[in-house]
Amino acid sequence: MGTPDFAVASLKALVEGGYCVVGVVTMPDKPMGRHGSVLQASPVKQYAAAQGLRVLQPERLSDPAFVDELHTLRADLQIVVAFRMLPRVVWEMPRLGTFNLHASLLPQYRGAAPINWAVIHGDKETGVTTFFLRHEIDTGRIILQRRVPIAETDDAGTVHDRLMAIGAALVVETVDRIIDGDGSVETTEQESLTTDTAPLRDAPKIFRDTCHIDWCQPTERVYNFIRGLAPYPAAWTEILSADGRRMALKVFRSERIAEPHALSPGAIRTDGRRHLDVATEDGFLRLLDVQPAGKRRMTADQFLNGTDVSACCMA
C-alpha cells in the first residue's frame, strides 16, 4: 500500500525479490492539467500496472466494497509505505499483520513529513523504521531500524533518495523475518527508546505558510530551513521593492556567510551581477538557486541578470 516514488522502491524490491505480491493499493488517479481533464496515475500504480499486478484504488479505505475485495486477496501480510492512515478492519486483516516503513528513527518525527523536519532541525542523522500498525499513528512496536547520516550539504531531496533505497532493503529484511517466524518476530515498544535528553519532535504536514522564510532567525537556522524544504515544496520569501511591489521567490540552495553586520534582517546586499546576499540575525545567506514566481528555477546570477534588487529587501 503506497502512492509516491518513495513507495515504488519497496514494491520494486519485493517484486524483483520474487515475493508473491497479490495486490497493490494506491490513491485514485488525480486530475491534472489546466481543466483537470487528464487523469494522472500515482507512481506506485504506474509501476504495478507495468508489472501486471492487481491494483485497487479506493476512495475510502473503510468502504465495505473495498474491504470485501481486499479480503478476497487473502494476503498473509500487508506492507504500508507512504500511504494513508488505515482503518482497523484493514490493518488487522492479514494473519501475519500489517507493518509500515517510516522515514525516521521512531519515536522521533511521527507524522507526514519526517525527512523535511529532520533536516530543518539540523539533525546529524536520521533513518528508517519498520513497525507493526496500531490505532495511534506511527506508534506501533518497532521491528527494525537503520541509521543514516545527514551531511551539512544534504537537502530533503538527497536524504529522501538515500532513505528510499535503504528503506526498500529494510522492507525486504522485515518481510523475511516475519515469514521466518511465521508472524512471531522480536519487536520493541517505542516508549522504551525515549530519553529525557532527547525530547520527541513531531513531523506535521507542511503547508505553504510553513515554508515562509523568517530572516530574523540565525543564519544556521535559516540555512537548515531552506535545505529542509528543497527541492519540494521549497522555502519562499518575497522581494519588497521601494514602491511597495512584492515578488515571490522560492529559494532552493544557499550558503552561509559568517560576517557581523548592522543591517536589518532581510536586507539585501548585492553586486548586481553575481552575488545575492540576505542579512539574517547574525550574518548573511548567499542565495545560489532561486525561482521567481511564474518562471523556471535559475542560479542567482541568472536572476540578477534580469532583475534589479538594489533598492529592495526580503519580507
Rank of each mutant, 00 (worst) to 15 (best):
Q291P: 01
V175K: 02
L170M: 14
N100T: 04
G36C: 12
A168G: 02
Y47N: 01
S104F: 00
P292V: 12
D301A: 13
E191M: 15
T187I: 13
E191H: 15
P107N: 10
L229A: 10
G36F: 11
Q57W: 11
H212M: 15
T299V: 13
L249T: 06
A9Q: 06
A234T: 05
R34V: 09
K12G: 00
W215L: 12
A165T: 09
E152F: 14
L144C: 09
T195S: 15
E189W: 10
A7I: 02
K124P: 04
I143Q: 03
K12E: 09
G111K: 02
P204G: 15
A165H: 06
H275T: 15
A118P: 00
R34I: 07
K205F: 12
L56W: 09
D138C: 02
K205G: 12
A156T: 10
G294Q: 06
E220C: 11
L73I: 12
P233D: 05
E281C: 12
F6C: 06
E59C: 05
Y223K: 07
E259S: 15
E173G: 09
D29I: 03
G127K: 07
V148C: 11
R253W: 09
T187S: 12
L105W: 02
A315P: 00
H261V: 08
E69G: 03
P43D: 08
I213Q: 02
L288W: 13
A48Y: 00
F6L: 06
A49D: 10
L144K: 14
T194S: 11
R141S: 12
